[in-house]
Design a binder for these strands. Structure first.
Length: 473
RNA sequence: UCCUUCUUAGCUCAGUUGGUUAGAGCAUCUGACUGUUAAUCAGAGGGUCGCUGGUUCAAGUCCAGCAGAGGGAGCCA
């Protein structure tokens, strides 16, 4: 009856725990494989909580100790990996509906309890960041990673279902003109002995691409090229910013979704932003409820309520000028004084979203001086058709605009801001040949995940975060 | 990068005005228990108090520098 020789263990098709837990206990022999969360019991019976990551719940393995080799059972500890053949039965205990009466157990890998860092007990998120190679095995990170996957899938589904084409913008870029922040240099030159020109400067003509190149800070400009051919496109890929930012909302490597739409004005752009955000949150509630319930219970009692309120409420749409008036008339003491023309600080954005309106806000019509060169200029000569979508807790989740499609107006901004024209000739060409009104925005994927999971730190919603002074794992 | 708080056992933390042998809970190990739910009960082991230097008869405790982490801010998504 009891066997431990690998070759003797009967081959039975594996069932994922997720499916197992909703299978009727008709007394069939099943196989599950996974990692041990806890083992408890006495001389006669042992209970193993087994998890394979397919779902947040564990399946309970009941082991009749007398039928198994003592040494093998001793090695089944928290963190070890096993395969179990057994009988799926109705559970005699409370807390689960089905359980598996073990017939055969194969031990794939032990985990020395003296050194295995994950305990049955909860750990701080800071500690788990130091063992990011093992934290996917925790309930919290299992939940976050499953939700992250579901959100990535929902994004592709939403855009595909709405007639968008997925455009792959390049990761390596030769233009430094996006203006979205400091960049990471990409080079194959020897850092100790780079080839030099006669004047002592580094000779990038000898570099791999024949010119200085960097990792992308945005796929937007290429996205516009796609939109002015396919009408509706979106990019979804990694993005890199070499800023020395050390906050709970910033990563050096993050993922961004950038839809770009021909024939959309700023209002169409806002409609799309609001609709897609609601769709994503709705998708999470419909498909990740177990994981959300866990996070709601363990980290953030208001999470599910807050997600539902996003779906139920119309986002407030407000001009920058109106926002300034509200802030000026508020009794709130701000650290940074409010005046038309300033860039809004996070205390201002939080006041609008969390105190004044208590729902998401889309701000438009910013002063052109504080926004990027490519944004469409309004008739007033002072403002541009920018839009920022502000969410409670996390602030700016989307930044976008209608784009300036008029060649002369765009060109004059390029000149005014001393942007190197030679790097942008191809971008300017789109306004020369068959230009069209168009719009787009950037949605920070991790910021969306922050909001959907209720996690407080962006380092906890990406498997292996890259931040200043940290590229471990 | 700036402001601020922190760093003591594997983890989470306590440690008084500087004072003699640095504690707790959990985890681990050993034992008990015939169905447990982060099992329970009893016992045991486990420490270069982040690093370097200084003040002092005496430093986990005070001072300086460095490193790392948390929170806030800026930059942004």
């Amino acid at each position: 009856m009891h066997k431990f020789n690998l070759s003797q263990m009967e081959k039975i098709k594996q069932t994922k725990v997720k499916a197992m837990l909703i299978t009727k206990p008709i007394g069939s022999i099943v196989n599950v494989k996974g990692w041990v969360r806890t083992k408890r019991g006495n001389k006669n019976v042992a209970f193993i909580a087994l998890n394979d990551g397919s779902v947040i719940h564990n399946i309970q393995i009941v082991v009749d100790v007398l039928n198994f080799d003592e040494e093998t059972l001793r090695l089944i500890t928290t963190g070890s990996c096993i395969s179990v053949n057994g009988l799926l039965v109705e559970s005699q205990g409370q807390g689960q509906t089905v359980e598996i009466q073990a017939k055969e157990i194969e031990l794939y890998g032990t985990a020395d309890p003296e050194t295995y860092p994950l305990q049955k007990k909860g750990h701080s998120l800071e500690f788990l960041r130091e063992i990011a190679h093992l934290r996917p095995r925790t309930n919290t990170f299992g939940a976050v990673l499953r939700i992250r996957h579901a959100m990535a899938f929902a994004i592709h589904k939403y855009f595909n279902d709405n007639g968008f084409y997925y455009l792959h913008a390049p990761i390596i870029t030769g233009s430094d003109a996006e203006g979205a922040g400091a960049m990471f240099r990409v080079t194959t030159l020897d850092p100790k002995l780079p080839p030099l020109k006669e004047d002592g400067a580094i000779d990038y003509e000898q570099d791999f691409f024949g010119k200085p190149t960097n990792l992308t800070v945005s796929g937007q400009l290429e996205g516009e090229l796609g939109a002015l051919a396919l009408s509706l496109v979106y990019t979804f890929g990694p993005t890199f910013r070499a800023e020395n930012s050390n906050t709970a909302r910033h990563l050096a490597e993050f993922w961004m979704i950038e839809p770009e739409m021909a024939f959309y004005d700023i209002n169409d752009n806002m409609d799309l932003a609001e609709d897609c955000l609601k769709y994503f949150i709705c998708y999470a509630l419909d498909n990740c409820y177990d994981d959300l319930e866990f996070l709601n219970k363990m980290y953030d009692n208001g999470l599910i309520e807050r997600l539902k309120s996003i779906i139920d409420n119309t986002f407030v749409r407000l001009s920058y000028t109106e926002a300034i008036t509200i802030l000026e008339n508020s009794q709130n003491k701000f650290e940074f004084p409010v005046k038309w023309g300033i860039d809004l600080q996070s205390e201002h954005e939080r006041y609008l979203v969390e105190k004044h309106f208590k729902k998401p806000v889309i701000l438009t019509g910013y002063p052109k001086e504080i926004k990027a060169f490519y944004m469409k200029q309004n008739e007033d000569g002072k403002t541009v058709r920018a839009m920022d979508v502000l969410f409670p807790q996390i602030g700016e989740v989307i930044g976008g605009s209608q784009r300036e499609e008029n060649y002369d107006k765009l060109y004059s901004r390029v000149k005014e801001l001393n942007i190197p024209e030679k790097d942008l000739w191809w971008y300017l060409d789109t306004r020369k040949y068959g230009t069209a009104p168009h719009s787009g925005f950037g949605l920070g994927f991790e910021r969306l995940i922050l909001f959907v999971t209720g996690m407080g730190n962006i380092r906890d919603v990406i498997p292996f975060p890259r931040t200043p002074q940290n590229a471990e794992f």
